Amino acid sequence: MIGAVGTKMLLAADSGPRLPGVSDFLPPEILFQGTPFAINRIIFIRIVATVLLLIILGVTAARAKLIPGHWQGLVELGMDFVRDNVVYETMGQLRGKRYVPMITTLFFTIFFFNLFGVIPGANMAATATVTMPLVFAIWVLVQYWIAATREKGLWNYIRDECFTPGVPWPVYILLAPIQFLELVIIRPASLTIRLFANMISGHLTVATCLAFAQFWMIESANKLVGVPVGAAWFLGGIMMTLFETFVAFLQAYVFSILATVYINLSYPEAE
């Protein structure tokens, strides 16, 4: 993992370790420089992650058997988890059937993209910049607006959300704009910021631990002190890597269940 951090973790004994920063998430272009199709490291990771995910699920589906093997059983366990504990638990089976494919796609894509933050050679989640989380959030926004329009009609939905019955009319002056902003901006913004901020913080934490480990174990002049201190930092990096694996799953779960809740709120019964 230290090698994967590459030149970003170059250290100088007289100035201390070079710690990771925001610039890590704006890497230079590595392919098709100067064209509209320019690809930097994080875009390349997204492409690789997408291709691998499609291959894994495609091969699993192509080789599916009536009595599943260990791998097929693991994939089906994940799908059943999303269906039963995210979609059906929130929406119910009758309504949820419509959204099982969408929410399952969201969950698996986000989880797999997040995992690249702890995969050696990548060490950066494909969701660690705002673009991908924003795309996912806009997809959710479009879906709950479509559901609301289909179930209530667009104007009725906006009216019900912005002008809650039973509220004194002067309060609407303040309440209505806030409610409208929640529907259009706050919900997708919260989904976006929550996901990419967690992925950024995880990358920075792991990279910082490894930077200090490399500095103390390799660059420190006092090896008697540096080696045990560096080993402690390295152990911290391993522990944070394991924690980030859990966070990769947790953030996919949180995003998926919030997406399901927002869609469900567009139905009349959820008022």
Rank of each mutant, 00 (worst) to 15 (best):
Y172K: 06
F196M: 12
T60Y: 10
P68M: 02
I39T: 02
F25R: 06
P28K: 08
G166Y: 02
T245W: 06
V87T: 00
R18L: 15
W233P: 10
R95C: 10
N222W: 08
W139E: 14
M1D: 14
I193P: 08
A148G: 06
R95Q: 02
Y262Q: 06
P36W: 05
T129G: 00
G96L: 01
V171C: 05
Q72V: 10
M132Y: 06
N222L: 00
I119T: 03
V225I: 09
Y144W: 02
K223A: 12
R159N: 05
L195M: 01
Y99I: 01
I67S: 14
I257W: 11
V135L: 11
S220L: 00
I200D: 09
A125F: 11
T245A: 11
L53A: 04
F32E: 12
Q33M: 14
A61H: 15
P133L: 00
L11H: 13
I2L: 11
A197C: 06
M1N: 13
W169H: 14
P268H: 01
I146N: 13
T164N: 14
L54P: 03
F136D: 06
A128Y: 08
F136E: 03
L224G: 06
P101G: 15
E271F: 11
L181K: 11
V82P: 01
V227N: 08
P133R: 03
W155H: 08
I42T: 05
K97F: 07
Q214E: 14
N123R: 14
S15H: 03
K97H: 11
F108Y: 04
L154I: 13
G121R: 11
F25G: 03
I103D: 01
L115N: 13
C209M: 10
L250M: 14
N264P: 04
